[in-house]
């Protein structure tokens, strides 16, 4: 049986393909961005008067601002809710309730972004419109994003809390700490790294999310003055314009894709480093 001779080689070829895919993605993103990276200066993407790609004005800053604002807003809402959900399942809920609540969160994680976007468009946006027109706004984007990243925060926080050694909990109980005292003084500090890693991952997810935000945020390129103003995020911009973009315009869209990917890679590396620290 020569299978033992050719099997490792074949497997290696498969792994090489996986490597190639990664490098191809980088090569093509950089290659398509090259016209802009070499010809226009990067600074121009921040100093041009506005985003009017057909007239050669490529200011990405309003969209970058909108992306960061939407993600930050979603995190501000999702962190307390997700942390409360995790604490509920670990400490407060009776076990049957904890299990069904966990299932609910897992279900929420399985709903595709386009369905969140659709629900936001048909339910949330009309509701917001009655309150503060036009409805399709930064706030709508934040709310939909919150729902989408809540499971990430919850599941990671739950895993981190559940991994705290049981001796710590017992010692706290032996010292007569109250339930909140245990949480505040023992559990949260012990699980800090894991919880933070979850929050960073959730942030990365929010930055890259396209469809849901595209559907509810109104897609006007501007710096929002209030949360009720419509905005366009970087990812939404790529989705809206790639189909017809040509030349420099197309290259700028690839630059914004590269930018998003860079941001998310930095966040993912931070989360990974923190996650490692949790296990030590």
């Amino acid at each position: 049986m020569p299978i033992d001779q050719w099997l490792p080689g074949m497997l290696r070829a498969g792994a090489l393909i996986a490597l190639l895919v990664m490098s191809f993605i980088l090569i093509f993103l950089i290659g398509e961005s090259w016209p802009v990276l070499s010809k226009l200066s990067i600074a121009q993407l921040g100093t041009d008067s506005s985003w009017h790609p057909l007239e050669g004005a490529y200011n990405l800053m309003p969209m970058l601002t909108a992306t960061v604002l939407a993600s930050t807003g979603a995190l501000l809402l999702a962190i307390p809710l997700g942390l409360a959900s995790a604490l509920f399942t670990v400490f407060y809920a009776p076990s049957c309730l904890a299990i069904s609540y966990k299932r609910l969160i897992e279900l929420l994680a399985g709903i595709p972004s386009v369905v969140f976007g659709f629900w936001g468009l048909t339910v949330l946006v009309p509701l917001l419109n009655q309150w503060q027109p036009p409805g399709a706004s930064l706030l709508a984007g934040i709310l939909v994003l919150t729902l989408m990243i809540l499971p990430t925060v919850t599941v990671m926080a739950h895993a981190a809390l559940a991994a705290v050694p049981v001796e710590l909990v017992r010692s706290a109980a032996a010292l007569g700490l109250s339930r909140f005292g245990t949480i505040q003084g023992v559990m949260l500090p012990a699980a800090k790294a894991g919880i933070t890693a979850g929050i960073i991952l959730a942030g990365a997810r929010a930055l890259g999310e396209t469809m849901a935000v595209l559907m509810v945020a109104g897609n006007v390129v501007q710096y929002p003055e209030t949360v009720f103003d419509p905005v366009r995020t970087l990812a939404a911009n790529i989705a809206l314009e790639t189909a017809y973009a040509m030349g420099d315009h197309r290259a700028v869209l690839f630059v914004s894709g590269l930018l998003l990917m860079g941001l998310i890679m930095v966040l993912a590396a931070m989360a990974e480093a923190l996650g490692k620290r949790q296990h030590v």
């Binding site: 990664m22 993605i25 993103l29 999310e209 396209t210 790529i238 989705a239 690839f254 966040l267």
Partner: peptide
């Protein structure tokens, strides 16, 4: 190297995969 590249790949947002797919 392989594990690292897969880890990076897992973090790439889907719209960027769309851009790559369109270009490649």
């Amino acid at each position: 190297t392989v594990r690292f590249s897969l880890y990076v790949l897992a973090g790439v947002p889907s719209i960027v995969f769309g851009l790559f797919g369109n270009a490649f």
